[in-house]
Nucleic acid binder design. Structure first.
Lengths: 244, 244
DNA sequence: TAAATAGTGTCTATGAGACAATATCCG
DNA sequence: CGGATATTGTCTCATAGACACTATTTA
């Protein structure tokens, strides 16, 4: 190897080769959540290449250093390749790295999660792409690599975050009722805060607007709301007690 | 390149070479905070190698795939190399990756922050290692790479987190007063919650114990507390209003 | 005793939560 | 009307926060 103690930075960079060093593999994986039939689901794809060939895995893969501006771009590109629509909510959760998680050797993955509206239900899926229903902390089947654990990590973040944000609305279609929000809490946390508390929080000036429409059943019809055009994710400064 | 569509996974792995692909550089950087002389400070080190030679930088560097079990290990090793003692609190914040942050090309860094007790003040530092005082969102001098921004990212997380956790105690020496906690809030947030609120929160069964000692000044002496041996980081379920 | 900071008592504000009461639909 | 779910009213509880008051030291 070159002795570069005497080089200028330009000379150093000219002789520098990334591949001279043992580096970990580096990927981005996204946990795409949706709320469908009163359950939380995660999108997975069947792998056609080694390793973990013919196993189901989260959307994700290598950073394309010639195309991707930054890690968020990579995450969005991986999502776009599997779901046509852009995620209304995308957030980086954690980076996991160790020797064991990939048979090719030491690897790290930057884990994101994305929230999709339930209406993503109607969308045509690519072949070999499936929404798997959450059971407990992860999906009910064994996924490639450590992807079951990555789902747990993302879910845990989501569980914490719905306690003090307006995130549940990103899992709902354009129009929804307050009872729908309650159902989202139930799917994510296994419990739901009292409707009184949900109403107090979600029916504020900046978040929702009454569509004027109602959802009819064999009972009093429920008001349908939609996200205000100007709405952004809101943060509240207390947690619910009843969901802990 | 080999056509590996027909290979077994074992055959695939045998011929797989990490370096066949354009991968980003991959590092871990730690923002070590301490509270000293009523200010928040960050430990930095003078670089002796290219790139950014002779510039001050955060402790950090490449993952050692032959030594490090996981990313937390890498962070702890990088810290240990610069500060003898282990960090009482270490947390992964975010992973930043883009083309611009390192002159060698596309690179990612997993950012951690660590909290050290003010008594780390007394400790002997390695040469070319300095605690820099925070000014605004970062330190007052230009650091290597995007390290000023990484400090901002870590600080922002710390600012959020002190609002609903017991983290301030990890920046204090073994024995401290409630006024010291207030000073930590001031250093981190620029404001401090009312002493009444600090007392209500921090003087609970599980966190602190009275040492029996007092700190004397030209006034009523203050009770000195210490962390209970069994204490872990606590989470509260409201934010302060006065510090927002 | 005065200055200064530590610590307590108490009332208010906010928002979660329990729960009863009322509203509005369908069949 | 009766069943069912939506929505509102109201009281309680926990805790942040304002603020006055008391406590304990040094000079």
């Amino acid at each position: 190897m070159v002795d570069h103690s005497q080089l200028t930075e330009a000379e150093y960079l000219a002789q520098y080769n990334v591949q001279d060093f043992d580096a970990p593999l580096c990927t981005v994986d996204v946990v795409p959540f949706r709320f469908h039939n009163h359950r939380l689901q995660v999108l997975t794809c069947l792998r056609h290449q080694h390793p973990a060939k013919e196993q189901w895995a989260l959307p994700g893969g290598f950073i394309d250093i010639s195309q991707d501006d930054n890690l968020d771009t990579t995450a969005q590109r991986k999502l776009a390749a599997k779901i046509g629509t852009e995620a209304p909510y995308l957030e980086q959760v954690q980076t996991v790295g160790n020797q064991q998680r990939d048979p090719r050797g030491w690897s790290i993955t930057v884990v994101y999660y994305a929230l999709f509206p339930g209406s993503a239900a109607n969308q045509v899926l690519l072949p070999d792409t499936r929404w798997l229903t959450l059971q407990g902390n992860t999906v009910g089947q064994l996924l490639a690599f450590d992807h079951n654990q990555l789902i747990s990590v993302a879910l845990e973040r989501l569980q914490n975050k719905v306690q003090y944000t307006s995130l549940p609305v990103y899992l709902l279609p354009e129009c929804f009722t307050l009872a729908d929000i309650s159902d989202v809490f139930l799917a994510i946390l296994g419990k739901t805060p009292p409707m009184r508390s949900i109403r107090n929080r979600f029916l504020n000036e900046d978040l929702l607007e009454d569509t004027g429409e109602k959802r009819y059943g064999s009972n009093r019809p429920a008001t349908l709301y939609r996200l205000k055009k100007t709405a952004v994710a809101q943060f509240y400064n207390r947690l619910y007690h009843t969901t802990q």
